[in-house]
Design a binder for these strands. Structure first.
Lengths: 214, 214
DNA sequence: CTTGCGATCAGGGCTGACCCTGAGGCGCGA
DNA sequence: TCGCGCCTCAGGGTCAGCCCTGATCGCAAG
């Protein structure tokens, strides 16, 4: 098996390369960022790419984005995404669209090189490898994301400002609209997020929590 | 230089050991959890311990706690804490009480083995190594923590429930107290968190945000 | 013993937030 | 063209939340 490793941490990259080499897996290239990853894969044509989700320049989802491009350019390439924490947005799309030759593991769960090699073998054989916590978290995140997707762009603007702790009048000032408009947006936000009038909940706070978790 | 490595990830531990060995640093032991770390340090008497903050069983601050114990038992031992994210509570105490032979770096910032070795050298020579972002984050977190420290235990109970999105009447039910008592606690919370009456802020949401960030 | 603090509760008042209902304008797709 | 969704705004009403002021009790420290 011929493998490429992409991680902005040279430390981890080199360490990983060293360990995999010891297991007989050939590391044919390394990349520190998404652009370099695409180039290295083009040049070395590996069987599989091990990609850290967070890479420069934004350290957000560059790795996941690069994975999408890799799949487009190299449909037979296996991809193993590694992440330190659960990253739902891009991964959900990736798994849905390309379930084969794909893996997503939390680094914390790769307790030794055996786990990693087993995952690589599964992916290389056409399978899918997902950490169970990843699966259940994706489902939960999906729910919140779907609720937030019901909101119009304007409603999302308003909710974002609510989540900063702004009052209705401050939101009206900020968006240069009338306070009655803010109230209307908020009413629609609460309805779309299924936050109905109950004596137990502070619905505004609930809406804010939903936003913060989305 | 003789070094011990403690990280629950065997992958990272082995990779790190391999890399450090190549630079001439002797890795005299490895540990997968805090208990094992203490035993390995007792047995091998290293110059320095590289410790991941999050280790079993709780994966919260076992590493930082073990560092405190290590310093007590081995005052000359250098300690380098590594973390994937900013962890403020125990580190702030550790730095304040033991500024020498101490380091705290974010794994993301250790871009290659050179950075790591430089840090180890500094610590071994008696110095302190702190990532700049760590410093400024510690200061910011300190501020919020100090505000929350002004609250009485009961006030913190109430604020935690506010942060779950409970209404005042639900909080009263939950804590088996009168709603007037809840109102009194909330008034005191808002005062202690310096959240005064302004037309721009939704103060309850602000209080909740402070809690969530603390 | 006195004082201060925290927890609890009360009476009464005000208001921002939320709601109901209604209306107009614009853009887009069928 | 029509219907729908979105954005905007209005009049009027209700109430949970917040506040002011006051009071009692228990506990710990000086």
């Amino acid at each position: 098996m011929r493998v490429v490793i992409a991680d902005d941490s040279g430390l981890l990259r080199s360490g990983l390369a060293s360990l995999l080499t010891e297991t007989g897996i050939e590391v044919v290239g390394q990349a520190a960022d998404a652009t370099e990853l695409l180039a290295v894969v083009d040049a070395s044509r590996p069987d599989l790419a091990i990609v850290d989700i967070r890479m420069p320049p934004t350290f957000t989802h560059e790795g996941a984005r690069a994975a999408v491009e890799l799949r487009a350019a190299h449909p037979e390439l296996g991809i193993l995404l590694l992440s330190q924490s659960l990253e739902s947005r891009y991964v959900a799309d990736l798994v849905r669209e390309h379930p084969h030759r794909f893996g997503y593991l939390l680094k914390d769960r790769v307790v030794d090189v055996t786990v990693l090699v087993d995952a690589l073998r599964t992916i290389s054989a056409g399978g899918t490898v997902l950490d169970p916590d990843v699966v259940s978290h994706l489902l939960g995140r999906r729910e919140i994301a779907e609720q937030l997707l019901r909101l119009s762009a304007r409603e999302r603007d308003v909710l974002a400002l609510m989540a900063e702790g702004l009052s209705n009048s401050a939101i009206a000032d900020r968006l240069v609209i009338d306070i009655k408009t803010v109230e209307t947006h908020i009413a629609r936000i609460l309805t779309k997020l299924d936050l109905h009038q109950t004596p137990d909940e502070h619905r505004r706070v609930r809406a804010v929590l939903t936003w913060l978790r989305g």
